[in-house]
Design a protein around this nucleic acid. Sequence first.
DNA 1: GCAAAAGTGTTTGCCTTACACCCATGA
DNA 2: TCATGGGTGTAAGGCAAACACTTTTGC
Lengths: 227, 227
Amino acid sequence: MSQIELMSTFRLSVDCAIFGYQDGEIKLLLHPNIFEPFQGKWSLVSGFLRGDENINEAAERIMLSRIGVDNVFLKEVSTFSETSRYPKVRVVSVLHYALVRVDELQYSRLESHGAQWFSLNEVPNLIMDHNVMVKRAYKQLQREANDQLLGKELLPPFFTMLQLRNVYNCIFQKEFDPANFRKKILSLGVLKKQPFKNKTESKKGAFYYSFDPAVKSYCADKIFSLK
Amino acid sequence: MSQIELMSTFRLSVDCAIFGYQDGEIKLLLHPNIFEPFQGKWSLVSGFLRGDENINEAAERIMLSRIGVDNVFLKEVSTFSETSRYPKVRVVSVLHYALVRVDELQYSRLESHGAQWFSLNEVPNLIMDHNVMVKRAYKQLQREANDQLLGKELLPPFFTMLQLRNVYNCIFQKEFDPANFRKKILSLGVLKKQPFKNKTESKKGAFYYSFDPAVKSYCADKIFSLK
DNA sequence: GCAAAAGTGTTTGCCTTACACCCATGA
DNA sequence: TCATGGGTGTAAGGCAAACACTTTTGC
């Protein structure tokens, strides 16, 4: 066993599967890689850990510098460490997933990097093991969307029950019953009814809701049984 | 920003919270650290990633070399990457948890390293952030014990319903109702009744069960609602 | 016979699901 | 007036918690 093998040097990459909600579906933000040998191929948003930050700080820095959003919903998913996943240099990645409001992103910054939103069923071939990462990140998103009420991170501050239900329909790839969805969500006690209506999506008009900032922990138990 | 900060060199540590089941309770295997400045203080079982292996292989190598067991149930939990968590060198850790059968361990190997089993409510002060690691690993164990029927990894090949229930009582820190537990577990359809009984734990004698090797995925949904 | 665990059955109440039904209104 | 989503109500079914009850056998 050579000394190189025992004391390997490598770089730690922080990769972010960034999910947004646009045109009634969950989308994934990709950008073209700028380094050889992957130049031009689509990739998750990523960067290397620096000496003056922990992994979470690195993820926040990368999100801010690449898409210009701060205070992002960010969760660690898992590591990727196959020895041959990157040529020449050993790179270990820590995958995260992020939820962002598409309208909050600075399009100028996105476009300057060539970033684009992709539907989840139209994700192209990505570099390295990034296609596997997308699948795993999405699974974790599904699991956690059932542990707590997400949506705050994907929707504008005020949203209708229809909009929230559409998000959940997308995430879980199923049609929730409108009546039961409403009752279940309201019973969680984390939404605040607003005194004004959205009239663009129905004739009658639907009240807007927002997340009650007074409630910290959204849900202790599972939201849906998903049978 | 100095070059050091941008291109930090660091080592990647693989840490294992090893859980076993002994004397009717869940225990944690610790060993005394051998490196300065932590020499002699209790620590999780850990080692550094080498250049010729991925993280999972490293964890398996460490488990085999330290406690002499192969084919261990191993799950990645999360990373720990505070910049100041280790003096001088930057060390990023990937925490795992492992389930082992206490009787399978080679005691000679354990003792040569000075390793010891600790009750979960008697865990001493550990080095670095290892106490936080133990808590997080245990929480993940709880979550996953509700996603799938564990126990195979902690109990001998043949076990009674009482033994399995005791494991679950320990993991979830609650008393499951014997009748309901039996019905719930058997309804999962993953256990195989054996044609012989254990007579040491009750007068009447309880049939042994084993995990049915034909069943791969133990449980798709939650086992207990845990309200 | 007593105690103690094994094992089965039953009742109760809650939660989910499915769906009926009325409301409001733009086209 | 008709279609569409908003919103409320309710009946049926499934499931889990609580617990009664019988079995078995070492002491």
